[in-house]
Design a binder for these strands. Structure first.
Length: 593
DNA sequence: GCGATCAGTT
DNA sequence: CACAACTGATCGC
């Protein structure tokens, strides 16, 4: 769950994925994807009112996100204020203060995030440096290298800060099976089941959130059928999704939902109530997509787990694993890393502090991130079994250096979800309980034994239970909403105009940036281990017991009082250097050669 | 009655 | 069993 307060240190007049409280004063808004925890305040009356007076305020997002957002009427009032941007198209934006007229320019580029349809990362470039807000993301190892706009020429851009999806930023979540592997497991399970008879059906127990669409499309493709869902409205303009989903219940694959669906399932009913035409009871299995993770040295990774009876869990993750995050970071080598997800259960006392902690605190400041893992074997948390595949380098993906970025290669498979071509759509039925069930077709007589999926029960170290508490007290001292009811300066919305093909050069080096990385070579060789001075530590205030990251060597934990002061300063927008005791320490980036 | 928040569930 | 959302209780306006 995102706990990003909305604003970044470098470009504080814009708000991202957060629309309440202080964010009401932003000059521009950005939405990385359409999940509720990133839309806090977005339908609020305060914001609605602001839009009436602030004529230059816009909401920037991907085309798909705009489509999904507007498919919910509660956000319809945004329609005239949304600027939908193409992926990978640097766009100039003027951030205008409508009161003073002062203005700041940034160039934003949307990068595919692979988290759900329409999800993007925002790359901002301007006078305050290049910063990346990742939103939530699921990228595979090596994906960063394939993103053209992270590069300038044949080297990685100097990235000052990254605001990072830290959901699984913990060595416990070292690996999560790839999308492809998960898909294969799910396909096998489904194949084995539905091929037994037309009465064998599967229910995909998906949560009410975007992100399962690629499952639907792949399964639809694989089994030459469509997946039953509750509604098609949101996909109205997304033909490549639309063609694989249906509201017709006569299919063997369901992803429909009902408030009591689990209960219904236990009674051998589908959420939609579908039954077979001839009264033969359906044989239903449920498959619940859920995240499964494995330690660094775990050899086999089960992708399907039988829960007993006819329910299964299938591996599925919306977020990158620890090793995927590491790979991403080690490639882009940001100077600062700020967590977007702070998973900790605070004590009451800490909660008090938290009220004054609206701002993000860097968890890492270093000019060389990688190699850090070399030194500390992040508590070998429970990868008991020594196994092969202990290729240490896996932490630090080898390739890079000599590998010139290959932006040509197909970026994260989700590219297709970023298209939203208008398409004529019919409206579809509702839940008319009863008939309408044409005979279930597709009768595969290939009966098979149900034992495909990874069935290695050798002590595998799977999931641990931790408490990724979603209770992070809402940062931000509530300030009386000084709703800027300001005179409107009908400044042309040239601001909102996309001047595409602005291949901006990113060699701007903000002069007054104390954190400025020293001539960074993006490409990182992973062989030398000079990284002992690299830091990998969360600000103590942010560290939950779940994370236990080693503290920066040579640094000391600030006391509560110090932290309080710091938070106050941050809250007031005062410039604060939060650099943590690692002054002279530098991770030299060796040239790629 | 609406919305925000929290606790509990899934 | 790890996401993200829904439900219901409570509180305030």
């Amino acid at each position: 769950m995102s706990s990003f307060p909305g604003r970044m240190k470098e470009y504080s007049t814009i708000s991202i994925d957060r629309f309440d409280k202080e964010n009401l004063h932003a000059r521009a808004y950005f939405l990385s994807h359409c999940h509720k925890d990133h839309m806090k305040g977005l339908k609020g009356p305060l914001l609605k009112r602001k839009l009436k007076f602030c004529l230059t305020v816009r909401l920037y997002c991907s085309i798909v996100t705009k489509e999904l957002l507007l498919s919910n009427r509660k956000y319809a009032f945004w329609e005239e204020h949304i600027v939908a941007l193409e992926l990978d198209s640097p766009t100039h934006i003027s951030l205008i203060d409508e009161v003073t007229g002062e203005s700041e320019d940034v160039v934003v580029t949307l990068l595919p995030a692979g988290h759900c349809p329409g999800s993007v990362m925002f790359l901002f470039e301007g006078a305050q440096g290049t910063v990346l807000y990742t939103g939530d993301f699921r990228l595979a190892v090596g994906d960063a290298a394939r993103m053209e706009h992270l590069h300038s020429g044949d080297r990685v851009k100097d990235i000052k800060s990254v605001y990072l999806d830290t959901t699984f930023y913990d060595p416990r979540f070292y690996q999560i099976p790839s999308r492809e592997a998960c898909l294969i497991g799910i396909k096998e399970l489904i194949q084995d089941w539905i091929s037994q008879s037309p009465y064998h059906v599967v229910w995909l127990n998906c949560k009410a959130a975007y992100g399962y669409e690629y499952l639907f499309t792949n399964l639809g493709e694989e089994f030459a059928s469509q997946v039953h869902v509750n509604s098609l409205d949101m996909y109205r303009k997304m033909p490549e999704i639309l063609s694989y989903v249906t509201t017709n219940r006569a299919t063997q694959i369901h992803a429909c939902r009902h408030p009591k669906d689990e209960e219904l399932f236990r009674a051998n009913r589908l959420p939609c109530g579908c039954t077979s035409p001839d009264g033969t009871p359906l044989r239903i299995i449920s498959i619940k997509p859920s995240t499964m993770w494995f330690g660094e040295r775990t050899r086999k990774t089960k992708v399907i787990v039988r829960m007993g009876g006819s329910s299964y869990r299938a591996c599925f993750s919306f977020h990158s694993s620890y090793s995927e995050i590491k790979d991403f970071l080690s490639y882009i080598c940001p100077v600062n890393i700020y967590p977007n997800v702070i998973p900790l259960a605070r004590t009451v006392e800490e909660d008090i502090q938290a009220q004054a902690l609206p701002e993000i605190v860097p968890i890492v400041q270093t000019s060389c991130y990688m190699d850090c893992t070399e030194s500390n074997d992040d508590e070998d948390d429970e990868d008991e079994e020594g196994e092969l595949l202990n290729s240490k380098p896996s932490v630090l993906p080898a390739r890079h250096s000599s590998d010139p970025p290959s932006p040509k290669k197909a970026p994260p498979t989700w590219a297709t979800f970023f298209k939203a071509e208008p398409v004529l759509t019919d409206e579809s039925s509702e839940l008319d309980n009863s008939q309408s069930s044409q005979a279930l077709s597709t009768y595969h007589t290939t009966s098979q034994s149900p034992e495909l999926f990874d069935e290695d029960d050798e002590s595998e170290s799977v999931h641990m239970t931790s408490s990724q508490s979603t209770h992070i007290s809402d940062g931000g001292t509530e300030t009386p909403s000084q709703l800027d009811t300001v005179p409107v300066q009908a400044e042309l919305d040239s601001a909102a105009q996309s001047s595409k093909q602005n291949k901006i050069q990113t060699n701007q080096k903000p002069e007054n940036d104390p954190h400025r990385p020293i001539e960074k070579e993006p490409a990182v060789r992973k062989d030398q281990s000079e990284g002992t001075d690299c830091t990998e530590a969360m600000s103590d205030s942010q560290v939950s017991s779940d994370f236990d990251l080693p503290q920066t060597p040579g640094s000391k934990a600030p006391h509560n009082d110090e932290l309080k002061e710091l938070y106050k300063k941050l809250a007031s927008g005062e410039e604060v250097i939060t650099r943590r005791g690692q002054q002279g320490s530098v991770c030299h980036h060796h040239s790629k050669k």
